[in-house]
Design a protein around this nucleic acid. Sequence first.
RNA 1: GGCGUUUUGGCCGAGUGGCUAGGCAGAGGUCUGCAAAACCUCGUACAGCGGUUCGAAUCCGCUAGACGCCUCCA
Length: 492
Amino acid sequence: MELYKTNQLKIYNSLSKSKEIFKPIVEGNVGMYVCGPTVYSNVHLGNVRTFMSFDLVFRYLKQLGFKVRYVRNITDAGHLENDADEGEDRIAKKARIEKIEPMEVVQRYTVDFHETLQKINNLPPSIEPTATGHIVEQIEIIKDILAKGMAYEVNGSVYFDVLKYNETEHYGILSGRNIEDSVHNTRELDGQSEKKNPQDFALWKRAEEKHIMRWPSPWGEGFPGWHLECTAMSTKYLGETFDIHGGGMDLKFPHHECEIAQSKVKNKVNPVNYWMHANMLILNGQKMAKSTGNYILPNEIFTGENKILSKAFSPSATRFFMMQAHYRSVLDFSNDALEAAENGYMKLMEALNNLENIEVGKVSSINIGEWKKRCYDAMNDDFNSPVLIANLFEAVKYVNLLLEKKETISAADLEELKNTMNTFVYDVLGLQNNSEENACDKLNGVVEMLIKMRKEARDNRDWALSDKIRDELAVLGIQLKDGKEGTTFSVN
RNA sequence: GGCGUUUUGGCCGAGUGGCUAGGCAGAGGUCUGCAAAACCUCGUACAGCGGUUCGAAUCCGCUAGACGCCUCCA
């Protein structure tokens, strides 16, 4: 029987601002859409955190037995940079600077994005559609919204009429705003004279002469507006109403608010049942962002090539660091925090390796079933990975006590412990075991030989030689551990 | 200025109206030829001031700080 039938998953819904019991539209199936990256530069660690948060959601839904269609777009048509740059989107701008074809920029950074997510062990989504591949769908939606009188055309551009929409619907329902407030508080910017109101957002923008990315439309040559692509792609692949829509907290307004408005006009239904927002990664007390230069790239962490880092950290240690925080909490990035996470991560991996060395007994002195339930309870409570990890460390303690024979475990319980730990560590959290990568058979053989030689030296009370072997191996990052049952080692 | 979130022990980070989060770092102990590892024990917490309550770090109010959004942004 599928686990979702016995596990009651609760998800914090940004729309209701409360945890709700998750009930998919079609039993056993989940449709999930997550706003993907704009591929005009390398993804930074803050971007990665969001995608990792939803990777956790994706993985756990699958673990519960749901059949998940996970759609995450690639924004390759670019967003408008600001109104002063009217007609010029980010990707076109970058292309001009580098004197290359826009789609070459898109290709380069899409590849970088995929490589980075693969290193950090994110699962690929089920469908990864591109904005440029869905121009036709976007044009159709605009025509529909125009026909319904909720948009207007000016000089080859089409804008969504927010004030008119707000007469019958609540623009601001997701972000907790009232349009009346923002009417009084929105700063007037230049170049907005086309719009009836500053709150109106573009559905279609007329392309200036020099604009590189352009498509024909009923309103002339141009390109789609900021928020339309997600509406087009999510509803195309998941339906007019689907289960989960995710994205970074910073997209809640205006991006997701606009998506709701567009969908409601076009389909007359709420597009999303559960809105999920992942919180920001903080560096130097501020949100990581390309625009401010306050960011760190994933590769800089993996190579250690950044002045705030004392050394390189593996993708898994980095992933573990992020999983130790809840996805809805702000997380502070620092070298100290990463180091602490790395130490904890290695301790966890050590215990996983040691699972193989445990001897079974007739009865169990620890309650594995109860422990397993606590693991699921943690994840059922809005994907609470930090509490899950606390429970995994509880299991680390079990493993060590079992090795010392201070506790006993039955064969069936040991199997349960192994399966559950593997499931949560590898399948749900998506961590990888680095020690397996580092230690190959030849190395194992050499170290075992040295351990044997050291034992002979110790038996002869030749402490100088035995310590020399131990210390020199330590310098190489190989740590020897003398236990009651003999010496073991770990590779750092 | 508006809307929202947040403030936990040396550090990172959970959580709850009364019952140990966890990790890292630190102290003492067991073990050990010594060390490391492991295990056991321990410490200083819930920004400040009021209120509700038998009881609040947990609910409410005020004050102070921080962050996010209000413009592209994960």
